[in-house]
Amino acid sequence: MTKFKIATWLGALVFSVMAWSQTLAIASQEKLVISGSSTMAPLVAEIGKRFENLHPGTRVDVQTGGSSRGIADTVNGLADIGMVSRALKPHEHALHGATIAHDGITMILHKDNPVDELSNEHIKAIYSGVITNWKTVGGLDAPITVINKAEGRSTLELFLQYFQLSNRIIRAHVIIGDNEQGIKTIAGNPHAIGYVSVGTAQYDATHEVPIKLLALHHIPATLKTVQAGTFPLSRPLTLVSKNPFTGLAQTFIDFSQSPAVHDLILKQYFVPIP
């Protein structure tokens, strides 16, 4: 019994010493806290891993919470760098930003839907509940299922801004959180319309998910047109900071904009800056 107790105490002691030294080791590292857009987080986390390998003794901590959270955290000093997946708003222009890639948003339909292109006016009318049947825009005689994004998402913001809609007049049947939920909903409903990232949509469309990407202004939604900057509904992915980048943050920004991470950007279906 006593032997067992002593062993337990010894174990606990050894363990706490180990935990303590671990904490010390972490404290001696240089740490970069990055927070913001959930669209960018997976990409920046990958870049961060590669950055850590190249710069031993550094740690890149990536947290998500949306573009607005990223800006708030940078302004409040909770994060060193914010991730923003939309153009900066006027009152946010005081921030220092560096674009690392582009992302496009595409309208998607079910593969079996005979409609191949919709004008901006049609899309506006569908989303505001003026057109409620595919027949009106040259499709089958079936009610349209409108899929919208939940409030606060930057995809929604960009969509509303581009089509000059307000969320209040949108008559949605389904409200989704992430891109995959939207794609699955459309894959299961031939009469649905929604919008997601071009990268995600193109990946799924080429991997036997029954969806198709709609062209806008006759420009097809592909990674190429987003890269060329010709696809109208696209957004920059930007890293921001309150003060001009210095030291480790500057090194990280330079690394993120260099061709050394282009493979990571393409792997996430985003488009690198030229």
Partner: peptide, 8 residues
Amino acid sequence: ASWQPPGP
């Protein structure tokens, strides 16, 4: 959805 759209 196939019976009474939209489904969800």
